[in-house]
């Protein structure tokens, strides 16, 4: 069977199964289990209404439980076992092994730089673009063009930027714009930007900043438009200049949104995999946690250490997770 046909069939079966599940489970509940007639009609209706939310929730919760909640605990368990010993419990052995691996510490160091640079740069750029484009007539088009990389896959972006960073031997024409500019400005040798240890990390980060700025811009632009006009007018009357208005009036008022953007990008950074995988695959000291984990799981086939690395990512996400949950609960009250 052709996969496309299989795909269509799956949609049909999947959608059909979902709809009939919801439809028939409701009918069974109302007509068979708790019929709204007879001596207990009232009690039955109440009981049916107690059960019904769970009918609606069941498929979603089952999928969430199986595909996200269960793996967290299973990964924790796997990180404490050794596959070669038939899954025997080995305590923190995998974590010790990982701590002895210089590649792990390289990944941690690089991730720390990613976490410092990318969210800050993306948010700052996004804020600047949002502020600037709000003032001009063709701002909507400008925004849409800067937002565009959001639609491009990390892999596509990797190809785009590899062309930018391309290096040809001295004496031939440079086809990477960065080297062309570098040589035009008096550089003496074309540089292989992605193989210069330490600094190559920043060339990889540029790719993610390029993608994430659009996201930051969209959210911050909406927040800026929500800043009450009176506060700005009052500042103007008091003689504030445009920079004072921006930094002292507007930015403090959208601080909450800035934090949201910052944390969202932070999570993206922690999970960054495709860019490194496609551009350097962790060579030349560009390893990051997610790629390290992938290496351990599928190249070294060491599920224990791989799971331990995944747990480290989870651990780093946890504070943001807790903060989000705390805020969501506060908002619902």
């Amino acid at each position: 069977m052709h996969p496309a046909v299989q795909g269509l069939l799956t949609i049909a079966i999947g959608v059909g199964a979902c709809i009939s599940y919801f439809y028939f489970s409701n009918i069974i509940l109302d007509k068979l289990i708790f019929p709204a007639r007879g001596p207990h009609a009232g009690r039955n209706i109440n009981r049916a209404n107690l059960v019904r939310p769970w009918l609606f929730l069941f498929p979603g919760l089952a999928a969430l439980g199986l595909y996200l909640a269960y793996p967290v605990f299973e990964t924790l368990r796997l990180s404490l076992t050794d596959r070669d010993l038939g899954g025997a419990y080995v305590g923190l052995e995998n974590y010790r092994k990982m701590a002895d691996d210089p590649k792990f510490w390289e990944a941690m160091r690089n991730n720390a730089f990613w976490l410092l640079v990318v969210p800050a740069a993306s948010t700052a750029m996004g804020l600047i673009v949002a502020q600037l484009t709000d003032r001009i007539r063709w701002g909507a088009i400008a925004k849409s063009l800067i937002f565009m990389p959001m639609a491009i896959s990390f892999v596509g972006a990797a190809v785009i930027w590899k062309l930018v960073y391309d290096a040809r031997p001295l004496g031939t024409e440079q086809i990477g714009i960065l080297n062309a500019i570098y040589l035009a400005l008096g550089g003496d040798q074309p540089m292989n930007w992605l193989t210069i240890p330490f600094w190559n990390n920043f060339f990889l980060m540029v790719v993610l900043i390029w993608i994430q700025t659009g996201f930051a811009m969209v959210i911050l632009s909406a927040a800026l438009r929500g800043v009450p006009e009176e506060t700005i007018e009052a500042a103007i009357v008091d003689g504030a200049n445009p920079f004072q208005i921006f930094f002292k009036i507007k930015v403090p008022q959208i601080m909450g949104t800035i934090v949201v953007v910052w944390t969202t990008i932070t999570i993206t950074v922690l999970k960054v995999f495709d860019i490194v995988f496609a551009m350097t695959n962790g060579q030349w000291e560009t390893q990051v946690l997610a790629n390290y984990m992938y290496d351990q799981l599928f190249r070294a086939r060491d599920w224990g250490v791989g799971s331990a690395a995944a747990m480290v990512i989870m651990l780093l996400v946890t504070p943001i997770l807790a903060w989000n949950v705390y805020n969501a609960r506060k908002e619902m009250k």
């Binding site: 969430l64 996200l68 793996p71 299973e74 999570i267 999970k271 791989g306 990512i313 989000n324 969501a328």
Partner: peptide, 20 residues
């Protein structure tokens, strides 16, 4: 449940690879 879903929003899918 809503809080759980907000929490699951940020769980890295890397954790799910081997178990799944």
């Amino acid at each position: 449940l809503i809080a759980v879903i907000v929490g699951l929003l940020v769980v890295p899918l890397q954790l799910a690879l081997i178990p799944l």
